[in-house]
Amino acid sequence: MSENKKIRVATCSLAGCFGCHMSLLDIDEKLLTLLELIEFDRTPLTDIKHCSPCDVGLIEGGVCNAENVHVLKEFRKNCKVLVAVGSCAITGGIPAMRNNIGLWECFQEVYQFEGGLEGGQVPNDPELPLPFDKVHPIYEVVNVDYFLPGCPPPADAIWKFLTDLLAGREPKLEYEMLHYD
């Protein structure tokens, strides 16, 4: 396949742990096959900072601050197909554990009360993104075309999903590949 016909893919991690990205890398030698079919746009793997028009966008993580929303909207604007990858993008996941704890209480716990801290100041630089009082799944902010559950989705599930999508098939996970944990 010639270079200019490759499927262009962007990825990012919002309020996530990069575990889903690690699981993508965990497809091991199949990465070489994948790279014959796709090329990367914005992703932590290329360190490209902004998304240009793409075929597929893979989003890991939920939405926990204003910057997440900007990134997510940039992806939605540029990606023909947007995929929510992993539990955090689909339900808010682990970061959403803070949803019933006040934001200030969270900050105090992390920056003031936690043992071993000196000075105990809550960061307040204007360049820091504005945190939200609750973490939300990405589909509550933009339209999402496909969901790939798991914490993280197994490498085999990511491979199955991507190869289905790249072949023009409706992605379908077998029973053992679909899990929420």
Partner: peptide, 26 residues
């Protein structure tokens, strides 16, 4: 219902019914 940090995950009927019904998101 956060399956990744619930110790019932894998033994949970709610989760299993969701799998059975091909629930890809809430």
């Amino acid at each position: 219902h956060f399956c990744p940090f619930c110790e019932k995950s894998g033994n949970c009927n709610l989760q299993a019914v969701a799998y059975h019904l091909d629930m890809m998101s809430p």
